[in-house]
Design a protein around this nucleic acid. Structure first.
Length: 542
DNA sequence: AAAAAAC
């Protein structure tokens, strides 16, 4: 069965009426409005519609269907029952600031440049007016904490390691200084070859950052490349690689281009590793090393960004940086307090599916993002949800074709996916502004994974909800994750906190626990061999 | 510790 057929099938039989969901949305919106009004220390944390990613998404024109329709029904409801004027719900929302968490910030290093309080202050740094104008037209008003500290540091050409929670605007914090320091699109005087490189762990994230670049690039002929096989090949044509300003790439893609001689990095002045701790993982490290070694420009600036940076990765990072400044926003390795988190006991693996179905039997806030531990389990879970009549279920993992992956992201950005089942590939960096709820169907194996996964909600000052299933098998790591919840202001049952510290042996045992390939083995008795990795839907339905 | 992701 094709992916499209999967989509069609998943549209059948809704468990919730549309109006149910709309009502739920309205309640949520009202709550946040009231919160905004009674909170005295509100900052200007609202998200202007111009800032919305949806309109930059491929094929994603305009706003998401669900939001539009809910605002229409709000309109009608008001006229019919309350006789109020017909002000659009989105205008109402825009006039109210969403409360923003005020973070503690630490900036350490020698001669740390002072932070800025407004984007206007960038004038004194010689930031081109075109850039500040683009900021304004894209709806950016006040810098977030990570932006106000990191932008001056990078503008002063310092190396930087920055740790800031999920959804706090790290991308702009490194892109704005790059555009500013490059000053103008590549010209004969700027040397030959690409001048700035951003390296990220997944293609989806690379694409998202590319879209963000396009916002800042408006009005000038910047040459920005989302690195792929095709764009790399295009560079091999006579001298094309010399007129490039910024490349966004995954590590292996870039290394392949280096080895093919398609590109050299001798003129790179700015190198950014986003999701730095992930990039310094053993599997990525050799490639990162090669990329760094290939950047031979004498005044190369390096900057590392992430929401998490375990001690080991931080040591590696600091050794790669030259007289760095270390900026920490909030508490390291801790989720945002805006995300209300809970742990749900589900006994064993077969009990998870019924638990999830009963979760969907109550009103919920779409879109929901669900994390599974493997590609086949993600596919299989998506199928089970479809077969159980959940509407607009989607699946995304790296076993799909490039096109299938891109289409899934587009549907998500357009609001067509109400339930997205995915793997670790979506855990980091992806900014789906509408995601209200994250469900960890399979228990995350590290604190970093937990923090990044649930960080797909509660972005840019919005509220979010995260539910994590755990079974008896997950016990060895339960306390570790429970402490993360506690640290960020969520509550945890007493008995979990009283658990003994897991022993090394127990942890080793947990590593050996093998979850079934599919979430409902009963459905696949005797047919397990037929499971193919590269398929959005199990062949049993084909 | 293991899966996923990277080509």
């Amino acid at each position: 069965m094709s992916n499209e057929a999967f989509r069609l099938l998943s549209r059948g039989g809704t468990v919730f009426s549309k109006s149910n969901i709309d009502n739920h949305l309205l309640i949520k919106r009202k709550e946040s409005r009231q919160k905004g009004q009674r909170n005295a220390t509100v900052l200007d944390g609202q998200i202007p519609s111009e800032l919305d990613f949806f309109k930059y998404a491929q094929g994603g024109q305009g706003k998401r269907k669900i939001v539009d329709e809910s605002s229409n029904s709000e309109k009608k409801r008001k006229v019919n029952h309350e006789g109020e004027d017909m002000q659009d719900e989105d205008e109402l929302l825009a006039s109210v600031a969403i409360p923003e968490v005020i973070h503690r910030v630490s900036a350490k290093g020698s001669d740390v440049p002072p932070h800025i309080d407004s984007f206007e202050a960038l004038n004194t740094f010689g930031v081109p007016s075109r850039i500040t104008a683009n900021l304004k037209s894209s709806g950016y008003k006040t810098p977030t904490s990570v932006q106000s500290y990191c932008i001056p540091i990078l503008l002063k050409s310092r190396d930087l390691a920055a740790i800031s929670p999920t959804g706090t605007g790290k991308t702009l914090a490194y892109l704005l200084p790059i555009f500013s320091k490059l000053a103008a699109p590549a010209s004969p005087s700027s040397g030959n070859g690409v001048r700035a490189v951003v390296v990220v762990p997944t293609r989806e994230l690379a694409h998202q950052i590319y879209n963000e670049c396009l916002k800042l690039a408006q009005g000038r002929k910047w040459k920005i490349i989302l690195f792929s096989k095709a764009t790399a090949n295009a560079l091999s044509q006579n001298g094309a690689a010399d007129k490039v300003d910024i490349i966004i790439s995954t590590p292996l893609r870039l290394v392949a281009a280096l080895q093919n001689g398609v590109i050299d990095l001798n003129n790179v002045r700015h190198l950014v590793l986003d999701e730095a701790d992930r990039m310094l993982d053993p599997e990525f490290m050799p490639q990162i090393q090669e990329i760094v070694n290939s950047c031979t420009y004498s005044f190369l600036q390096k900057a590392f960004f992430s929401a998490t940076l375990p001690a080991g990765a931080e040591k590696l990072a600091m050794e790669m940086l030259n007289n760095p400044v270390r900026v920490v926003v909030g508490v390291k390795d801790t989720p945002l307090p805006l995300i209300s988190q809970s742990l749900t006991y589900v006994a064993d693996d077969p009990s998870k599916l019924p638990s999830l179905l009963s979760y969907f039997a109550k009103p919920y806030n779409p879109p929901v993002l669900i994390f599974a531990s493997t590609q086949t389990r993600a596919t299989s879970l998506a199928e089970e949800l479809v077969l159980n009549g959940i509407a607009n279920v989607d699946c995304l993992h790296a076993g799909l074709t490039q096109k299938e992956r891109e289409d899934a992201v587009t549907r998500m950005r357009k609001g067509e996916s109400w339930v997205m089942v995915t793997t670790e590939v979506m855990a980091r960096g992806m900014d789906f502004k509408g995601v209200r709820e994250v469900i960890n169907y399979d228990f995350p194996t590290t604190v970093q994974s937990y923090v990044h996964r649930i960080g797909r909600t509660g972005r840019a000052g919005r509220e979010g909800k995260a539910v994590t299933f755990f079974t008896d098998d997950d016990a060895p790591y339960l306390k570790t994750i429970a402490n993360v919840l506690l640290q960020s202001g969520s509550t945890v049952p007493d008995w979990i906190l009283k658990l003994p510290k897991p022993s090394k042996l127990k942890k080793r045992q947990m590593g050996k626990i093998k979850r079934p390939d599919v979430v409902n083995p009963a459905r696949f008795v005797g047919r397990r061999d037929s499971i193919k990795k590269r398929s959005a839907l199990h062949p049993i339905y084909a």
